[in-house]
């Protein structure tokens, strides 16, 4: 059964206001910026974002007033510095106040893993002397019933929808992603539903020829969207490199709220869809394309 829809339709249908949305789950690469842009174009409100790093995707959503709550380990601009919209929201309530649930990358991974396993919690030894558990407010300190040591219990996070970007998927949502996975697999398996943004849509036989590369089975997926270049300015392994300068330009342009408004008008609300965004990038986009190296054959 085909689940192929347009990005507009996928976001309109599967991400109602107030949803808990996980995205950017591979950390710095494979961030589905095209989906973040569409959430902004559709003026989604009161989203609860879940993601470890997000490299400016969360910052754009926060600055656009789409966000009520952030569950994250880090919100910033990895190669440029602080996240200006996140700062304005937290320091001045501009454009609105948001609630933050602090995590580390490990507790983010464990929360989603607990969700993926259907487990009531997962015990860990990280962060025992950190202030993050107190700030997060959902972890509990406990004593291990086996050795009496202090442990931290991490409850599950269950996203309403997880959005992942991948190199290729079939029309049923069986998705091949290569490169590091970060917390993508746990986030997809934990979620009530998954939207897949595929750089390329392929026949089922391509997926079935190499099933170890499947990050998420089609049974979890509600919508498959064919979006070439969905991750720009973040990279997608074997397809295109990171556009470092784009991150740095965003950093310089968004220091003030008015500059952010101009930036979003130019790059997001002022373009109808992702194809138009890539066309606007022009030769800059084509220069990022990579062909990568072939993997050795594995025979099944």
């Amino acid at each position: 059964m085909t689940k192929l829809v347009s990005l507009k339709e996928a976001i309109a249908r599967h991400v109602p206001d107030g949803s808990a949305v996980a995205l950017g789950c591979a950390l710095e690469p494979a961030i589905p910026f095209a989906a973040a842009h569409e959430l902004i174009r559709q003026r989604k409100r009161d989203l609860r974002l879940i993601g470890p790093i997000s490299d400016i995707a969360f910052d754009m959503l926060i600055g656009s007033g789409c966000v009520a709550e952030v569950h994250a380990a880090w919100v910033g601009n990895v190669s440029a510095g602080l996240a200006h919209c996140y700062r304005r929201a937290m320091e001045q309530g501009i454009p609105r106040r948001i609630i933050v649930r602090d995590h580390s990358n490990f507790t983010m991974a464990l929360s989603l893993l607990a969700g993926a396993l259907g487990a009531p919690y997962i015990a860990t030894r990280t962060l025992l002397r950190s202030d993050i558990p107190r700030a997060n407010g959902t972890f509990k300190e406990a004593t291990s019933p086996w050795d009496g040591s202090k442990v931290l219990l991490i409850p599950p996070l269950v996203p309403d929808v997880t959005i992942i970007a991948c190199q290729r998927a079939d029309a049923d949502g069986n998705a091949h992603q290569w490169g590091p996975w970060g917390v993508s697999q746990e986030a997809a398996l934990a979620a009530k539903t998954v939207i897949v943004l595929a750089d390329e849509v392929v026949d089922r036989a391509v997926i079935a020829s190499d099933p170890n590369r499947t990050i998420c089975p089609g049974i979890k997926v509600a919508a498959v969207v064919h979006v070439p270049g969905a991750c720009h300015p973040s990279p997608l392994q074997g397809r295109y490199a990171r556009d470092h300068e784009f991150f740095h330009e965003y950093h310089r342009a968004t220091r003030e709220a008015a500059g952010f408004e101009r930036w979003i008008a130019e790059w997001v609300t002022g373009v109808p869809d992702h194809a138009a965004y890539l066309a606007k990038l022009g030769p800059r986009w084509t220069a990022l394309r990579e062909t990568g190296e072939p993997a050795a054959e594995a025979r099944f």
Binding site: G76, L82, R87, M90, S104, R125, T126, L128, I132
Partner: peptide, 18 residues
Amino acid sequence: AHPTVQLPGSGGGADIAS
């Protein structure tokens, strides 16, 4: 909840330190 300066956060730093 109302910081003077909001910094990016831990990332994996707090785990590495712990």
